[in-house]
Amino acid sequence: MDFGPYLMLATLEGAVTAAVLALTASGLALVFGVMRVVNVAHGEFFMLGAVLAWWVTHILGGSAAFGFVVALIVVPVLVGLLAAITDMTILKRIDYDPERTIVATIGILYILQQVTLMTYGPDARPVVPPFNTRIALPWFEFVDGKISLYWPWGLSITSYKLAVIGAAVLVLIGLWLLMTRSKLGLLMRATEQDRDMALAFGIPVERVYALVFGLGAGIAALAAVLIVPIQQAHYLMGHDPLLLSFIVVIIGGLGSLPGTVLAALLIGLSDGIISVFFSPTLAKILATLLVALVLVFRPQGLFGARKA
């Protein structure tokens, strides 16, 4: 394949990564933005989404599309509920102390991961996509000074991958509307601005926190359900999304939704393109170092305004 078509393919694959990453990271950003806590177990909620999606489609059997649609609706709700319960039983009791929350969510990470290992097992299992048409893509070349299209061999994408991108965009728009236009979003933003003031105004801060924590995990689970037909479900699959979400959320300016989406696009696309040319390990090393240095040298702008 020539360079041009190759780059286009890498860009499209990168766009799928970026879309899923944008969703997963938004969940993390939402939780950090409103609650000012870092949820280290975020990747495990993602993993749970994928594994539960396998369970749901497996139990329902029948048509792939039906099982998948049920999973798409049921799984994020289940994971969100589980997260909300975690919030109320654990995080609330340690009063959302930032450092203790990290330690507690590390514990939750292991619990979720290991319970999955005990029940679901160590195997990676696929979920059949609801539809999966291969779409060949055209490229152009100059023949006698005129542009003409042709279909290079191997330059194609599946309809499902395009649908993933579309779905991610829709969910992100929905989340944006929820945060900016709804009463619920107003409550969240009020809590984010000043927790004590929100309490004084009679906002049920505890319930808002449980809801936000559940919503954040639910969005990660939704991203996982979307990706599982492409990636397979495995009990260790939460690690990479967690790390990448951290990177995205920090570069995007912790807690800011538009910044997060933009950073996800940047990382997702460049990850796809860079790993075409460089070793993916080297790309990851550079990305983690970049994030560490961003936090060291630009903490004020990128880490949001931490209360002293």
């Binding site: 654990i90 340690i94 330690v103 514990g107 290991q114 319970v115």
Partner: peptide, 20 residues
Amino acid sequence: TTAYMLIAGVVLVFLTLFAP
């Protein structure tokens, strides 16, 4: 069990909650 890290998780959560 192969899922022995479960113990680590439970201990971490337990310690944060009850015996920091």
